[in-house]
Amino acid sequence: MIKGLFPTGVAAVEAFDDATPAPLYPEESALLGNAVAKRRDEFATARRCARQALGLLGHSPGPIMAGPRREPLWPAGVTGAITHCAGYRAAVVARAGEFSTLGVDAEPHGPLPDGILETIAGPAERQHLALLRRRHPAVHWDRLVFSAKETVFKAWYPLTERWLDFDEATVTFDAGRATFAARLLVPGPVVGGIELGGFSGRWLVGRGLLVTGIAVAALRPAVTMHPLPDLIGY
């Protein structure tokens, strides 16, 4: 299901339960502390998805540790993201030479709890979502904007190593194309000498889930052509 959100070159693996045994490396198990069995199972399955995705890029299995924001720490030369929610786990990875960053998030396809939308979306966004609800009532747009902003953060953080609040990006959706655009309201990360003003992504609804994804192709600095020196007088 998730592969349709990402372009060629991104390896994606998903699981809809924790039925397949997924042993953890001791270093990974230590990250969980005294977590309950359910948390350990979902973490282990997500790590299994990540190792399988890395295998598609030619990497040997190994522990996937976590950074200060619990973000996965990928092997050198790899960018990626992991998500898990009730009934779903997934990982996406790509070579850093091909993609600067990736983001992915999955959520149950249901409404947000009361009062949450007002904390994650501004007035213009809520007006946009209200219009979408009238035109496409089958989609829980409030949950989808939450997922999109989670995905924006996952794409943002590896490039900046800084927090991004919900109110520091605005998201709009194209229902017909199943795409979204996020405009940053703070200075964006500089990639390949270019400041990113936002992110674009795709979304899908299926199997009781909402899934959002972002893939930013690697940007390379433009080559500056310097004029030849004036040779008169040499």
Rank of each mutant, 00 (worst) to 15 (best):
L102M: 02
S147D: 09
V145F: 11
F16W: 15
I116H: 04
P75H: 03
P189W: 12
A182L: 00
I120Y: 09
V186I: 11
G193P: 02
K149A: 09
Q52H: 08
R133S: 11
V205R: 15
Y234Q: 11
E14Q: 04
P189V: 04
L204D: 11
Q52V: 13
L131Y: 08
Y157F: 08
T20Q: 14
T179Q: 10
A11K: 00
L185E: 14
A50D: 07
L209F: 03
E107C: 00
I214G: 01
D174S: 08
A46V: 11
V205N: 08
S100N: 09
E98L: 04
A44E: 07
P123N: 08
A30Y: 11
V139A: 02
L73R: 10
I64V: 07
L228W: 13
E71P: 00
A138M: 07
R207N: 15
E42L: 03
L131T: 13
E98K: 04
L56D: 07
G188K: 04
A215C: 10
V186S: 06
A76D: 15
K38L: 12
A11P: 00
H128G: 01
V223I: 12
A175Q: 08
F199M: 06
L132W: 07
T170H: 11
L159T: 09
G192Y: 10
E71Y: 04
F173N: 06
T170A: 14
T8S: 15
T151H: 00
R70P: 02
I194N: 09
G80E: 07
H59C: 07
D41S: 15
R51L: 01
F166H: 09
H226N: 12
A130H: 12
R48V: 01
A94N: 07
L185Q: 14
G176W: 04
H226A: 14
L144Q: 10
Q127A: 14
H136D: 11
A218Q: 15
D174W: 04
L228V: 08
A148E: 13
F180H: 00
L112T: 00
Q127Y: 09
V10G: 06
D114T: 12
D174A: 02
